[in-house]
Amino acid sequence: MNIEMTTTSTSNRFQNNYLVQAWLVLLLASLFGFILAGVQATLGPKIEANKVNETREKVPEVILGKSKAQELSGGGGSLAIDSRFISVEKQGKTKIYNVFEARYPDGRVAGWATKVTGQGYADKIELLMGLDSKAENLTGIFILGQKETPGLGNKIEEDAWRGQFSGKSTSQPLRVIKGGASDAYTIDAITGATISSRSVTDIVNTSVNDLKNNLVMDVEQKGKEK
């Protein structure tokens, strides 16, 4: 009698154990874990490549302009693009820029492009910014990602607006004004989307400020080496 009771209670305790109760959950979790690891191992490299290509594809266009980039690729040439990272110390924080250095087939530096992000009106704005070989002028910008208001703020993507940045000087920060921008330091705001316009301009100003000296130093050093 006594022995029987002990066995029942042991088996009861065993059956009520959390781990035993959850055997199916644990088994499925490990099985699914393996499946997901397999999926990640197969698709991971492709996803990474997508991310890199998305930016890289736009580099010639943002540095040379659309027509010249097409001319170059039409003539069978292409820019050699090197990617590297420049870290900038700012207010105790280190900011890392992914900079693409583009060279003509003959080895001359065509310019620089960098991927930068900043706060927009609705969400983060991600853009590619191009600088000429001496980092004196902007060659253009390209919006990679934005979630600004459709019909208003998302006009930052349109050629008509972002085209303004081509050829602007980097010697002083750009300012956003409402209509009538004509000199090398002003940008026209989009009607009804001043905040989005300012956000993009601020992102450009900040990155120019952070990178300009680094890039110029770089060019000078390389010049000396030659």
Binding site: V25, L28, F32, I35, L36, V39, Q40, L43, K46, N50
Partner: peptide, 18 residues
């Protein structure tokens, strides 16, 4: 939830890749 989450992750990765 476990089953659903697994297949959603597969779908998510697939979309990001293709």
């Amino acid at each position: 939830t476990l089953t659903i989450a697994t297949f959603v992750t597969v779908a998510d990765r697939f979309l990001a890749a293709y």
